[in-house]
Amino acid sequence: MSDHAYSAAERAAIYRAIAERRDMRHFSAGTVAPEVLARLLEAAHHAPSVGLMQPWRFIRITRPELRSAIHGLVEAERVRTADALGQRADEFMRLKVEGIHDCAELLVVALGDGREAHVFGRRTLPEMDLASVSCAIQNFWLAARAEGLGVGWVSLFEPQALADLLHMPAGAKPVAVLCLGPVTAFYSEPMLQQEGWATPRPLQDLLFTDTWPEAQ
């Protein structure tokens, strides 16, 4: 055991938050206290970022008409996604894919503009800006779970349409609509697994040694 390790109880709490994190779609009535929201955003802001570029930008949606407009963009993309799914279209349309009108808080997470100036760590992997934003969202998500709040990541939208709606500058790009708020209960397993949409693969199927297995 490393001298820098947390206590057993602290380690258990971290692993519990990771294991019980869920992509929530069902929210109950309630609010998120300002100090709790501040803690969640601070947790997100502590995420690692390649070259310390901190590409994340957060927009808190407070106007009801904006929330409705974002819901409209998501609904339009939901229909287009169903069309693209072909035989699974009806099955997909029965899924609840967002909680925009039900959640206590709605936030949009975006990549900031001017990212081309950050070369450190991105010269060969420019998508590391997105990886950094994803780490910030995961921090937010785990902290919310520890606070007993649900988070749902909605990605069904046309990015430029959402960017235009929120008056983002050229080069900025929205990557997530986050629904946040109290829930009656957390799903016992991922919702898409509960609904029979997909089955998670075990770690051993995704863990390789030295080389890609098909190349052996």
Results as ranks from 00 to 15, higher is better:
66 L>F: 09
67 R>A: 02
67 R>G: 04
68 S>Y: 00
68 S>R: 07
69 A>N: 12
70 I>G: 12
70 I>T: 08
71 H>T: 04
72 G>Y: 00
73 L>F: 00
74 V>S: 06
74 V>P: 07
75 E>D: 04
76 A>H: 10
76 A>Y: 07
76 A>I: 08
77 E>S: 12
78 R>F: 00
78 R>I: 00
78 R>Y: 01
79 V>N: 04
82 A>G: 12
83 D>F: 05
86 G>A: 04
87 Q>Y: 13
89 A>F: 05
89 A>K: 14
91 E>I: 09
91 E>F: 12
93 M>N: 11
94 R>C: 13
95 L>M: 13
95 L>K: 15
96 K>V: 10
98 E>C: 07
102 D>C: 05
102 D>H: 11
106 L>K: 08
106 L>W: 05
107 L>M: 06
108 V>D: 08
108 V>H: 02
109 V>T: 04
110 A>W: 06
110 A>P: 15
111 L>R: 10
119 V>I: 15
120 F>P: 14
120 F>W: 07
121 G>M: 11
122 R>A: 14
122 R>V: 13
123 R>V: 15
123 R>L: 15
124 T>W: 09
124 T>E: 06
125 L>G: 07
125 L>A: 10
126 P>D: 06
127 E>D: 04
127 E>H: 03
128 M>C: 07
129 D>M: 03
130 L>H: 06
131 A>E: 09
134 S>N: 00
136 A>P: 05
136 A>V: 02
137 I>T: 03
138 Q>H: 01
140 F>T: 01
143 A>P: 02
145 R>M: 01
150 G>T: 03
151 V>L: 10
151 V>T: 10
152 G>M: 00
153 W>A: 02
154 V>Q: 04
156 L>G: 05
156 L>Y: 01
157 F>G: 15
159 P>Q: 06
159 P>T: 11
161 A>V: 04
162 L>E: 08
163 A>H: 04
164 D>Y: 02
164 D>V: 05
165 L>I: 05
166 L>W: 02
166 L>Q: 12
166 L>V: 12
167 H>T: 14
170 A>K: 15
173 K>T: 11
173 K>Y: 03
173 K>A: 02
175 V>P: 04
175 V>S: 02
176 A>H: 03
177 V>D: 09
177 V>W: 02
177 V>I: 14
177 V>F: 00
177 V>T: 09
177 V>S: 05
178 L>N: 01
178 L>R: 01
182 P>S: 01
185 A>L: 07
185 A>H: 10
189 E>Q: 13
189 E>L: 14
189 E>K: 10
190 P>D: 00
191 M>S: 11
191 M>R: 15
196 G>F: 10
199 T>R: 15
200 P>Y: 07
200 P>W: 08
202 P>F: 06
204 Q>L: 12
206 L>A: 13
206 L>Q: 14
207 L>F: 12
